[in-house]
Simulated assay, not measured.
Amino acid sequence: MRRNGRVSGVARAARLLVAALCSLLLLTSCSGPLAGDAGEYTIAGGGTHGIYYAYASEISTQLREGGLDITVTSTAGSLDNLRRVADGRALLGFAQADAAADAVAGTGAFSKPEPIRAVARVYDEYVHVLVPESSSITGLGDLRGKRVSIGDENSGVRVVATRALAAAGLSEGDFTPVSLGLDDSVTAMQNGEIDAIFWVGGIPTPGIERLAVTTPLRLLPIPADVVETMNSEHNGVYRMSDVPEGSYGTHSSIQTMTIPNYLIVSAGAPDALVSEVVATIFAARPAMSKRVPVAALLDRRQAIFTAPVPLHPGAEDYYTSHRL
């Protein structure tokens, strides 16, 4: 397959994926982890307004062009994606590093260690705490007594929101938690039904961009002491950063924190299959980034840093053979 004079590696990758999957299905008699329904496979994305879903859609498009029958499933977010990959309902998924760390350790929302491995560190996500521009809320402490969307029950957003608010000195009794995903949070803020939204995602997140057009927004800063407290209790995966000036119409940069984001797979996935998944996403990066800008951030030198989640051996094979 040739595009604009360049040979694409996607077709080859997908053919090898199909072969690997067929071998797996023969071994599993079409049951158990990674077995699809009539040969159909899924990537666990998030809500349809978020970057997870957009990125997953691009990956599935690239794989389908090579002949693999794979689609995107809308989900509640990181926790949901981790469970779907662990129990075989999804071949691939996106997850925040903090939620993935809990999954492999069997802590937090997970009652036992889950068989999760990393394919790649794909990009870092920014924590957004959003309020209407006209709001009197200026910091996390001002959320006391307010209606705060903290994400779906099975989302990574909820993990971050509850930890950040606790680190800022607020318990659930100090505010009114509202369990909404991004799609419903956007609608609720447009209707004046909530006072603030927690969101974790790349910049720009499509749903927030659209919300900012109809409802001018401000982002609340996340102080360094809040991040330090969170890191002392949760694997040290959080980093200080800034939301750039101009994001979502803002007039200055805002201090916040970032969380690495991983593409994940089951520990039981065949090595050859995972190696070819990695080859596909790197070969397709230029095409994907035209529609999902964060895809341009995929970098072989950074993709291997997925601790505390181990890389899948198939991913390790790819990175070893493509050392810079």
Rank of each mutant, 00 (worst) to 15 (best):
Ala54Ile: 01
Ala14Trp: 00
Asn235Gly: 07
Glu153Ala: 15
Leu26Cys: 13
Val129Trp: 08
Ser74Tyr: 08
Gly77Thr: 08
Ile197Gln: 09
Ala196His: 02
Gly156Gln: 00
Gly236Cys: 08
Phe110Gly: 10
Ala105Phe: 13
Thr107Trp: 05
Ala38Cys: 13
Ala283Lys: 00
Ala99Gly: 07
Val119Arg: 00
Thr306Asp: 04
Val127Ala: 05
Gly201Leu: 04
Pro308Trp: 11
Arg6Trp: 14
Ile116Ala: 01
Ala269Ile: 11
Gly314Asp: 07
Leu27Asp: 14
Ser179Leu: 14
Arg144Ser: 12
Ile208Phe: 10
Val237Trp: 00
Leu63Asn: 03
Ala188Val: 02
Ser253Thr: 14
Gly169Gln: 08
Arg2Cys: 01
Ala287Thr: 14
Lys290Leu: 15
Ala56His: 00
Gln255Tyr: 02
Ile264Leu: 10
Ser136Glu: 15
Ala161Pro: 08
Ala44Asn: 11
Tyr41Asn: 13
Gly46Tyr: 09
Phe198Asn: 01
Val7His: 09
His312Asn: 07
Ala272Glu: 15
Gly145Trp: 05
Tyr123Met: 05
Ala283Leu: 12
Ala267Ile: 04
Asp317Ala: 15
Ala99Ile: 00
Pro113Ile: 01
Asp242Leu: 13
Ala11Glu: 12
Asp225Ala: 02
Val129Pro: 06
Ala101Met: 05
Ser232Ala: 14
Asp142His: 13
Val278Ser: 04
Asn154Arg: 15
Asp98Gly: 06
Arg323Ala: 14
Thr42Arg: 01
Phe282Ser: 13
Ala284Ser: 08
Asp37Trp: 11
Pro132Gln: 03
Arg6Asn: 03
Pro270Glu: 12
Trp199Cys: 10
Gly39Tyr: 11
Pro221Arg: 07
Ile208Ala: 11
Ala14Met: 04
Ile197Leu: 04
Gly173Trp: 01
Ile194Gln: 14
Val178Lys: 02
Gln190Arg: 13
Arg323Trp: 06
Ser8Trp: 04
Val159Met: 09
Ser289Glu: 02
Pro216Ile: 08
Cys30Pro: 03
Ala35Arg: 01
Cys30Met: 13
Glu193Met: 14
Val274Ser: 05
Leu27Phe: 07
Ala224Ile: 09
Gly145Arg: 05
Pro33Lys: 12
Pro260Tyr: 09
